[in-house]
Simulated assay, not measured.
Amino acid sequence: MFEKIEMMRMARALGAHASERHLVVARNIANADTPGFKAADTASFADSYRASSLAPMRTTDPRHLDTPDWSPLTRQTVEETGVSPNGNSVSLEEEMLKAAEVKRGHDLSLGIYRSALDLMRTSIGRRA
């Protein structure tokens, strides 16, 4: 039932993306001392959501604007840090920042989901 509502679908996809990225960040942190280990990261949520099988967002009015370059929705490139002498490219500081981003994304998905449920309850006459 909820899969047909775009906001619910997006909140679910955001939660799944946060879970996937959490696994990657945890794997990077666990292998911080492994010689030759290369740090990995997932694609941004916006890129992965647009690339999914869902219909792309479309403008319904010629006055609608595209996402501007300065918007937080646009992907910002992060320069890769150097590799340690043993060939490991994991930076614990960067991984901790990524972990904070993952938590923020997960909290955002839960907040969107709760708000959508509250809207649906209100629309059918029930209070949360």
Rank of each mutant, 00 (worst) to 15 (best):
F2W: 04
E3A: 12
K4I: 08
K4N: 15
K4H: 11
E6W: 02
M8P: 04
R9T: 01
R9N: 05
M10F: 03
R12N: 04
R12L: 02
R12Q: 09
A13D: 09
A13T: 05
A13V: 05
G15F: 03
G15Q: 08
A16G: 14
A16R: 15
S19H: 06
E20P: 03
R21I: 00
R21L: 00
V24K: 03
V25R: 07
V25Y: 09
A26C: 13
A26H: 11
R27D: 07
I29H: 12
I29N: 11
N31C: 07
N31Y: 06
A32V: 06
A32K: 09
D33I: 00
T34G: 15
T34I: 13
P35H: 09
P35N: 10
G36V: 00
K38M: 14
A39Y: 04
D41R: 05
D41L: 01
T42V: 04
T42A: 09
T42S: 11
A43L: 08
F45Q: 10
A46V: 10
A46H: 08
D47R: 10
D47S: 15
S48L: 08
S48T: 09
R50C: 08
A51L: 02
A51H: 03
A51Q: 08
M57P: 07
T59N: 11
T60F: 09
T60D: 07
T60Y: 03
P62M: 03
R63T: 13
R63D: 13
H64Q: 12
H64P: 06
D66E: 14
D66W: 10
T67K: 12
T67V: 15
D69Q: 10
W70V: 06
S71F: 02
P72T: 14
T74A: 07
T77I: 12
V78Q: 12
E79P: 07
E79C: 06
E80W: 04
T81Y: 04
G82D: 10
P85D: 09
G87K: 04
N88I: 01
N88R: 11
N88V: 01
N88C: 10
V90Q: 02
L92G: 12
L92F: 14
E94H: 08
E95F: 03
M96Y: 14
K98M: 05
K98W: 05
A99L: 08
A100C: 02
K103V: 03
H106K: 09
D107Y: 05
D107F: 07
L108C: 05
L108Q: 03
L110I: 08
G111Q: 03
Y113M: 14
R114Y: 06
S115K: 00
A116T: 08
D118R: 06
R121C: 10
R121I: 00
S123F: 05
S123Y: 08
I124E: 15
R126Y: 07
R127T: 13
R127D: 15
A128M: 04
